[in-house]
């Protein structure tokens, strides 16, 4: 193993949850390569952020089941990948009781963000009238 230089985390040998997370980080990583780069490119290169008002999102951007599903999939992938990534960073630098405390707050924030993101992407009414 010493021969290999990796910038990623070494595959956990014990199996179980840590190995599952290791695989899920890579699967969500590949998904985000497509979803996140497409999302960023569409909303910066095809459209200009200056025009993306609340009215534009409700009447144009989210006037489509496809883009709502796309954004919800992106939300799920990015919440999992980013919070599990930060979990690795926290595990590297913070130990003991502080680690438990910080991780508890992180998981809580992840759940809240997933909830409010899901609420807005699923429930925002479509308004076809332009202001």
């Amino acid at each position: 193993m010493a021969f290999y230089t990796r910038s990623g985390r070494v595959r956990p040998q014990g199996g179980g949850l840590e190995l599952a997370i290791w695989y899920l980080m890579r699967i969500s990583g590949v998904a985000l390569f497509v979803l996140a780069l497409a999302h960023f490119s569409i909303l910066h290169f095809l459209f200009d952020p200056a025009n993306q008002t609340a009215q534009w999102i409700t009447s144009q951007r989210w006037n489509s089941l496809f883009w709502r599903s796309f954004d919800w999939l992106l939300l799920m992938m990015v919440i999992f990948h980013s919070f599990m990534g930060v979990r690795t960073v926290v595990g590297d630098y913070i130990k003991g009781g502080w680690r438990t405390a910080v991780m508890s707050v992180l998981y809580l924030v992840a759940i809240v963000l997933f909830a409010i993101g899901t609420i807005v992407v699923m429930n925002l009414p479509v308004t076809l009238l332009s202001a």
């Binding site: 609340a54 990015v78 990534g85 960073v89 409010i116 993101g117 429930n123």
Partner: peptide
Amino acid sequence: SGVAIWLFVVVHVVDIYLVGGDPKAYD
């Protein structure tokens, strides 16, 4: 870069929530 993107994601999910919760604040 990962930690920076994570910080932005936290802000971005909240600001998009405002599209439904408080459109004027979002604008």
